[in-house]
Amino acid sequence: MAGTPPPNPDGTPDEAPDAPGIGAFLPFVLLGAGAVWETVDGSLRPGWLSWAGLAAMSALYALTVITAFRRRTMPARIALAGLAAVVFGLSIVLGGAWYYLFPLLGVACGITLRGRAVRIATAALPLGTALVVWAGGGTLESILAFSWGTFSAGLVVAVILHLHMVIGELNQTRQRLAEAAVAEERLRFSRDLHDLLGHTLSVIVVKAEAVRRLARRDPGQAERQAADIEAVGRQALTEVREAVTGYRAGGLADELAHARDALAAAGVRARVRRTGPPPAARAEALLGWVVREGVTNIIRHSGATEAEIDLTGLTLTIRDNGTDGPQPTQSGSSPDGPAASGSGTDGPRPAESGGPQPAGSGSGLRGLAERLGQAGGSVEAGPHPGGGFQLVATLPPGV
């Protein structure tokens, strides 16, 4: 019997979709069966007042439940106040079976009220019930029975609806966490593909240009460059497949060797130095991404003739002597297109901003900053005091 859950004046989330609905609480009106029987039997006098009271009670209870579950807070509370007036008034006047309607009033309070209001109601209503029953000449047993029935009815209903609200909130939170995990995985995958393909396509473009220049005057060298293109393409295909499955673990030594070859093919004289103990596996993978992105930027954007890659412990520094800024992206071309098209993966180099700054002005450097930031590291890029451009990546100990 699912239905729209009752209102929540405190602004808390909706209840679970399978929370008890209107149909689950309307049958509680049968608690007035005793008053109906005594009215028909003639035990309650005057009879017209009892019939009118029963009609008003039934209508107000139904209105309270319906408006509460339709999230009409103020009408529901007004109907509840009317129901309380009818129950208390006729219980004082007629007594007898009308005392059985106090638990019905407790149920209505548990449905309509939330937070502090329901706590006050479930505490005050049993006291009011006890006073009415005592004033009507009820015994101690009847006073305790009606008071406890009123208290437990309101408390149980309020707790049940609160638990369904909490379940609904947990379901919503779980859904949001699942959506966040999917978004994070998409971001990771896009970063991996950008870093993988950006570097590889840059190397392929450089080697293809070399093949075009050497094709006529040195066919043998051109054939070797073409073979390198084939090898790079096969390696890129393997890396993309591994990235898709999420198991790519880039070796730093391999990345440094690839970087030296790629820079040499682009006409950049490279010096690579490593000092200190070898990094752990995770640090190697992260620093391998830095090498890949830094070399890609040198090939695409710098116009450099010399480059230096220095790894000291968990600090990786990549410098070049380039002076040229990036060429503007051609109209209609992708910002991640080949270097030969005049576009770059990273937009304007941070060197043009006039000073070192955290990486983040381009998609590649921004991806590096996010990737290393998740491990507690940092990436800074900017002009080197001695000329050219410098990229510094640092990881904390223990990575």
Rank of each mutant, 00 (worst) to 15 (best):
V107W: 10
T345L: 12
P397F: 08
F25D: 14
M1P: 09
D310H: 03
D320I: 02
Q172V: 07
L161R: 08
A24F: 14
G344I: 08
L177V: 14
A253W: 01
L54Y: 07
E352K: 06
G220P: 01
L287P: 05
R213Q: 06
V157L: 08
C109K: 04
L131F: 15
P358E: 10
G96H: 10
L101G: 09
F25Q: 14
R292W: 01
L63F: 03
L196K: 04
R186P: 01
G355K: 09
A375G: 10
A108Q: 13
Y61K: 05
S152G: 05
D336A: 11
L26R: 08
R116F: 14
G347C: 01
G347H: 09
M74L: 15
V132G: 05
L104C: 08
D228W: 00
A264T: 10
G360V: 04
A16M: 10
V291L: 04
G115R: 11
R217F: 09
R77M: 13
L196V: 02
I143Q: 02
Q327R: 15
G149A: 15
R217S: 11
A180D: 08
T73E: 13
D336W: 10
L365E: 10
A121L: 12
S91W: 03
G347K: 03
A262L: 02
F102L: 15
Q175F: 06
T323V: 15
T112W: 10
L105R: 06
A283C: 04
G96L: 02
G11V: 11
A81Q: 11
M1T: 10
L31S: 09
E230A: 03
A76G: 09
R319Q: 04
V244M: 12
I204Q: 01
V156C: 06
G267W: 02
P385H: 08
W48I: 13
W148E: 09
A339S: 11
T345C: 04
G106M: 10
L311I: 07
L44A: 06
